[in-house]
Each structure stands twice: as structure tokens, then as C-alpha cells.
Amino acid sequence: MASRWLFEDGIGERRAALVDGGSIVEAMVERDDDGPVVGSILPARLHQVLQPGRRAIAILDGGVEALLEPVPARITEGMAFVAEVVREALPEAGALKRARVRMAPDDAALGPGPDLFARLSSSPHPVQPTRHHDSDLLEAAGWGEVLDAARTGDLDFDGGRLRISPTPAMTLIDVDGDGDLAALAIAGAAASAAAIRRLGIGGSIGIDLPTAGRKDARLAAAEAIDRLLPQPFERTAVNGFGFVQIVRPRARASLIERVREDPAVSAALALLRRAERTPGAGPLHLTATPGVLGRIRERGWSGLLARRVGAEVVLHPDPGRPIWVGDVHRQPL
């Protein structure tokens, strides 16, 4: 079957996966509480110049702070202007990296940028919307495994394992395994490229491959990256210690950053997704740690779930559970 996007409009978030040969090659989510997306044209005010001509803090419509880069000479602190979002806000450990904007063209019309479905619709691949009462095509393609990889950073491949660690400076991928080092380096480079694409990792990325030593193995590892990772990106050669650096555009958060930004929210959304697809009669019972159920209650998601499935939703807090271990129960038909 030809590549296609599966799109799901879920409670609290929209999900999408590019499926090729029955497996997910790209995965994305868009949440209800996301800030302004790339391409949004918004009223703004210059709040504080940090580096004249280069960087300033702007206040967007709604009070959101963003970085203005570059700073046109004709605007000064306190002046109003129209901003275009070129990078969305990015979650980082303990902080939120501000969105980046530039001054919009004079003829730009105010309005939000394209949402996830609009971006998918402009891609070369067809889009297939799915609903909660349809067959779970996303899960059949490996959605759960992709979320697990984003949550843990661990990803197995034939002969080895990747460990993915995001840091404020760059995302690091460590390749480990047994057997012939040259073969492991080539396989690890291919698995790393596939993971970068699947999880939407951008910015600076460092891959630590086994030290293969031989030049032909290093070249083959680099060629595997070039073959599997779509442009645009830049990379270094694989050096004698097995390290290669890749730089990709970073317009929005990766799936890893999304899942880890607020683990309780991510666990709640995953539980709600399962709950929507649980058949049966009578009330729908959700059991999870109080933090997860608190997110569901605070955001009104239990009411949305009840309307979607046409049944009462009952929440059962269990303080002894790990955050990602939740249960859904309903009387069988």
C-alpha cells in the first residue's frame, strides 16, 4: 500500500502518522493548549530589546512572549507591529523556550497558521481520517510503540539499541549492541536516521556510533543516514570515534518533547484514547494515578469522553500506580 497519513481528532489532541508498508515513519501530535503555530500572523508589541538589531522580546496578541529576530531599525520599544511565527514555543527541561517571530510582510493578513490537518493536506501523501469507532489503524501501525520510544528514549533495532537523550544543547543518540562493530555502526546509523524522522527530532543532533575504525564502514554509516533521513539537513562525516552530528530545521517540538513536557497530561491523553475504543455497556471506569486523573478532571476531558462514548465516566484514583499504568474497564456486551 502506498504511503498515507492517518489522522485522528482525539480528546485534547490531534494525532497523525505517516504509514508506509504498515509501519509508522513519521508521527506528530497537536494539542488543544498549544500556543501560536508556525505561519500565524499576529498583532504584537516590542517589549524589550536584548541585542540591538538582532534580538528582542515581543508580546503577542493574548500576552504570549516571543523572541523577535532580527529587530528592524524602524521599530523601538513599546511600538506595535505585525509578527509572523517562524518557530513555535519549545518545551525544555524546567523551562519553555519562547516562540520565535519576525516582522510580517506589509501585505500579510492577520490569522492563525495552518493546523496539523492543513499541513498534512498540503503534503504529497493522501490523508485518511480515522474515528474512535473505526478499526484502530494507528495502533495497528505501531502508535503505542512510538509513544513508548518517545517516553523512554529507548528503541531497539536488529542487533542493538538506541538511547535517545534530549538536552538543551542537542539531542544525543547513543548506539549500543553486540557483534561486529562495523555492521553495528551501519545498522545503528540507519536506525538513528529512522528514529529522528519518526519522532520529529530537529535542531542539533549527535549520534555516537560504535568505533568501527574502517573508513568504508564510516562511509557506509553516513550513506545510511543520507538514504533514510529526508532533506533538508546537514551533517558532518562520521569521525574515527564514531561520532556524527546532524543539524535539521526545528520549527516545532519533537514527539519526545511533547510526551515529556507534562508526563501526566501525556499519560492522560493516552488513557483517554484507549477509553474511547473500549467496547461494552454501562459506565466506563478509568483507574490511574491521581495526577493523571486530575488532569482529566481539570480540563473537562471526562465530560468529552462521556459524550463521545455515550456513557457515564467514573474515575478511580490509585496512588500506588506508575504514571503510565492506567486501566479502562466496562461491562462486556
Rank of each mutant, 00 (worst) to 15 (best):
A2Q: 12
R4K: 15
W5S: 10
W5G: 09
D9C: 00
D9S: 14
G10L: 07
I11D: 05
I11L: 04
G12S: 01
E13T: 09
L18K: 09
L18Q: 02
V25F: 03
A27G: 02
M28L: 14
V29P: 00
D34S: 05
G35C: 02
V37R: 15
S40P: 07
L42P: 12
R45E: 14
R45M: 12
L46I: 10
H47R: 14
R55H: 11
L60Y: 04
G62A: 06
G63K: 02
G63F: 10
V64I: 11
L68R: 02
L68E: 01
V71W: 08
P72W: 05
I75N: 00
T76Y: 06
T76H: 13
E77W: 04
A80I: 02
V86R: 10
E88I: 08
A93L: 13
G94W: 10
A95I: 02
L96T: 12
K97F: 03
R98Y: 13
V101T: 04
A108P: 09
A109K: 14
A109C: 01
G111S: 04
G111A: 01
P112M: 10
D115Y: 07
F117D: 00
L120N: 05
T130L: 09
T130E: 13
R131A: 14
S135T: 13
S135M: 06
D136E: 08
L137W: 13
A140Y: 06
A140K: 15
G142W: 00
W143S: 03
W143H: 10
E145Q: 14
L147H: 06
L147M: 12
D148Y: 08
D148I: 06
R151T: 02
R151K: 11
R151D: 09
T152S: 15
D154F: 15
D158Y: 05
L162C: 04
A169G: 11
L172Y: 07
D174C: 00
D176G: 11
D178K: 12
D178G: 13
A185M: 04
A189E: 03
A189V: 02
A190I: 08
A190Y: 09
A193N: 06
A195R: 03
I196E: 03
R197W: 01
R197E: 12
R198M: 07
G203D: 10
I207M: 01
P210Q: 04
G213K: 08
G213M: 10
D216T: 12
A217S: 14
R218G: 06
R218I: 08
L219K: 11
E223P: 00
E223K: 13
L228E: 14
L229T: 13
P230W: 07
Q231G: 14
E234I: 04
A237K: 08
F243M: 14
V244I: 15
Q245E: 15
P249D: 01
R250N: 11
R252G: 00
R252V: 00
A253M: 10
S254G: 10
L255W: 06
L255N: 03
V259T: 10
E261Q: 12
A264H: 10
S266R: 01
A270I: 04
A270P: 01
L271S: 03
R273T: 03
R277P: 11
G282D: 00
P283R: 06
L286K: 05
G294P: 03
R295L: 07
R297K: 13
R299Y: 09
W301E: 00
L304A: 15
A306M: 13
V309K: 05
G310W: 12
V314D: 01
L315G: 07
P319A: 09
G320T: 09
G320C: 03
G320H: 06
W324F: 13
R330H: 02
Q331A: 12
Q331P: 01
